[in-house]
């Protein structure tokens, strides 16, 4: 059912996520774009799993768990950097250069 459209939507979502990571400069927004990429992958797995068996659905649960763990660690790191710099704009987070 609707395999082609579902794959197309997830490919578009993934591309939006990648574009967001590459173009935006705020750490939180970049992180949200990464989450968008992961959810695009989840959609791909679910769409494929209708025809290929439950393995894909199982994978989605692993991806969700890992994304949650990443969010916990990532937001902690973002808070740590905010305490040091009072900004989350990557343009100004450039102590390590050259």
């Amino acid at each position: 059912m609707l395999l082609g459209p579902a794959l197309a939507v997830s490919a578009i979502l993934f591309s939006i996520g990648v574009a967001g990571v590459l173009l935006r400069r705020n750490a939180i927004i970049i992180f949200m774009c990464v989450e968008l990429m992961l959810n695009a992958v989840n959609l791909t797995f679910i769409a494929l799993a209708q025809q290929l068996g439950p393995e894909g659905q199982v994978f989605v649960f692993f991806v969700m768990a890992v994304a949650a763990a990443e969010a916990a660690v990532g937001l902690a790191i973002i808070i740590a950097i905010y305490r040091h710099r009072q900004t989350l704009d990557l343009q100004y987070i450039n102590l390590l250069r050259g």
Binding site: V18, A27, H84
Partner: peptide, 18 residues
């Protein structure tokens, strides 16, 4: 410096995981 290193590593690492 360590905080900035962690942030860069995290953002690019998560991007790569995607």
């Amino acid at each position: 410096f360590a905080a900035e290193a962690a942030l860069k590593y995290f953002l690019l690492g998560a991007f790569a995981s995607g």
